[in-house]
Simulated assay, not measured.
Amino acid sequence: MNKTDRLLAIVLELQRKGVLRAEDLAVTFETSRRTIYRDIQALSEAGVPVVGSPGQGYSLMEGYFLPPLSFTVEEAVSLLIGTDFVQQKFDVSYGAKAETSRRKIEAILPEGVRKEVSRARTTIRLLATDESANKGWEKEYIEILRSAILEECKVKFCYSKAISETDGNRHSVRTVSPYGLVLLNGSWMMIAKCDLRQELRHFRVSRMSDLLVLTERFKYPSDFILQDYRPSDDRDLRVRIQADPDIAHLLVESKNFYMEELVNHQNGLVMTFRVRQIEELLPWVLSWGADVVVLEPETLRSRVREEAVKMMKRY
C-alpha cells in the first residue's frame, strides 16, 4: 500500500473505530510505529483534524466525516455481503481488496446506521459448499488465469474430464487462449480458445493441474463479449425419469443441471432432462436407488440394470 492510500485508510479507520493507538495502526497496515507517526503528522499538515491523547491514542475531531456518502441500512448490508462473497469466491488479491472496501464502507456510515447494519449482518451468513470453498491452489489458479486474460498470454495445463473421451482417455494436456472466467453454480469455469480443438471450450478450474502461463501471446477477439456469450447447446439426448411421490420434493431441491421439465402425475413426478451422453446422468440416477425409474431411453435403462447387477454381486 502506497503512502497516499495509507493516509486515506488511516482516516477511514479512525472514523470507523474512534480512537486507535499508533501500535494498533501499525499492525493494521503492516508498517512501523515511526511510519504511523509520520503519517499522522502529514495528515495534520494537510488539514485533517487528528487529535492525539497521551496514553489513549489518536482520534478525529468530533463532527469530521469523509466522504459525504449516505447509505440506507439495506444498501450497506448489500455492499458488505458483497465483500464477504468476493472474499469467499475470488482469489487472494481480490479478497484483500474486498476487505479494504468493507473497512471503507463501515467507516463512512453514521454510528446509528453502522449499529443497525452490524445487527442485520448477524442474521445473515454466507456458507460456501465444499467445492466452492475453493482450496488454496484453486484460488491461486483463478488469480493466475485472471492475470493471463488481461495480459493476453496463453496458458498450458493438464485437464481431467469427468467422463472419458471416445478413446477412453480422461486426461489431456491443453494449450489455450483464455478469454474469461465465469462462476457457474458455485464452480469457476474458464472460457478459452483451445489449440487442440480449434474452437471455444469450457474448462472447470477445479479439474486443472500443472497450470503454466506461457510467453506466447494471443489477440483477444474484438467481437467476443463475455457478458453476451452463450455457448452452443449440443445436448440432444432426451431422458425421462419418474420419481416416487414421497421423494419428489427432494429431487426438485437437488436442482440437477440437466433438468428441463417437471410434471406431476398420479404415480409420481416425471422429470425430463437433456444430456450429451447418458454417463452424465447415470451416477445421479443410481444415487436415488429404487425410488426412481428411467422411462427412456432404453440405453440408460440398460446401464442402470447393468450397474444394479454389479452391485448385487458385490453384496
Rank of each mutant, 00 (worst) to 15 (best):
L66Y: 12
H171Y: 10
G268T: 05
R121F: 04
F65R: 15
T175N: 07
L80A: 01
R16M: 13
D210E: 15
Q15Y: 01
L8A: 14
R301M: 10
K17R: 15
N264I: 09
I278V: 06
E30N: 07
H249N: 10
R114K: 13
K310S: 11
I163G: 02
L7W: 09
L7G: 05
I142G: 05
L25Q: 06
I191Y: 05
S209T: 11
E116N: 06
E296A: 03
D233H: 10
P54C: 06
P68A: 06
V309D: 12
C158N: 13
E143V: 03
L295D: 08
P245D: 01
K89G: 00
S206E: 09
R301L: 03
I278G: 08
Y220R: 11
V73R: 08
C158W: 12
A308C: 15
E152M: 02
R146T: 11
N267A: 08
L282F: 05
G289R: 08
F29H: 02
D233S: 06
L150H: 13
A248W: 03
R201E: 00
T83P: 01
N185P: 04
D233M: 13
V304T: 00
G18E: 08
Q56D: 09
L184I: 03
V205I: 13
E138N: 08
D167W: 03
S160P: 02
V292C: 04
E138G: 04
D246P: 07
P231H: 02
V205Y: 06
D291M: 03
N264K: 12
L184F: 14
K255F: 03
N2D: 14
G180Y: 07
A128H: 02
Y141C: 04
L281N: 04
D91G: 10
K255D: 12
K97H: 14
M208H: 00
P54V: 01
L214H: 02
R314F: 10
T166M: 12
E165G: 14
E260T: 08
S287D: 08
K193I: 05
G180N: 05
R34W: 10
S172A: 03
E151F: 14
L281T: 01
G52D: 11
T123E: 15
K161Q: 09
L20E: 05
D130M: 10
R238E: 15
Y258S: 03
T129G: 10
D210P: 03
Y37F: 14
T72Y: 02
E111G: 05
L212M: 13
R238A: 15
P110T: 01
A162R: 07
Q88D: 10
R6H: 04
P54K: 09
C158L: 15
E74C: 00
K135Y: 13
V117E: 01
R301A: 05
R125G: 09
K313T: 06
R119V: 14
P283F: 04
R114E: 09
S172G: 13
L286K: 07
M312D: 15
L20R: 04
G57R: 11
L196R: 10
V293D: 02
L80K: 07
G268N: 01
S118I: 04
T175R: 12
L150V: 13
V213A: 11
Q242R: 10
Y37E: 14
R21M: 03
E165I: 01
P245S: 01
R305W: 12
A162S: 13
E131S: 09
R276Y: 10
V176M: 12
Y159H: 07
D39S: 00
Q227N: 11
K104W: 14
R21Y: 06
R174K: 08
D91C: 09
A290G: 15
R146D: 08
